[in-house]
Amino acid sequence: MLCDKCKKRQASVHIKTLINGVYVEKHLCSECARDYDSELDILSPSGIVSSMFSTIEGPTAKRCKNCGTTATEFKRSGKAGCSECYKAFEDTILPIVKRVQGTLNHVGRAPSPVVKERSEIDQLRYEMEEAVRKEDYRLAAEIRDKIKALEGGRQDG
């Protein structure tokens, strides 16, 4: 079998990876395999993504306004720079997501924020730690006294 890359030498490196039930195979000669080290990275999930990017034509001059990641960078690493990249490179990224995940429709849960209420003492302890962290020891001491008073009150009662 001839090498997929140079089409001259015999292929001696065979890479097979499974993506959503479909095998993707690559056959390279040892030289092309050495030159295309990154393609050997195909075994890692991000490698799968970046190798897919290399087969897709897309606009390369696009840049995410939020984090500065360029489409080329994105193609090379297979990783987004920030949550905004998914909007900035939508045209490029969605086909990839489709191939990696098999779908573009999230059906899992959405964030469901829970705000825990702290007891008065817990809240004061928290504020005291914050004060210590900010090296505001006067404030920390004041809060400590409040906590003591509350605890004392509780014990007396």
């Binding site: 995940q101 959405a110 964030p111 469901s112 825990k116």
Partner: peptide, 25 residues
């Protein structure tokens, strides 16, 4: 859930939780 109560998590209705690698979306 507690984390979601403290920060605005990166989430889209279409892609769900937005992650660095598309394999975790």
């Amino acid at each position: 859930n507690v984390l979601a109560g403290r920060v605005k998590l990166a989430y889209s209705d279409k892609l769900g939780y937005l992650t660095s690698c598309p394999t975790n979306l």
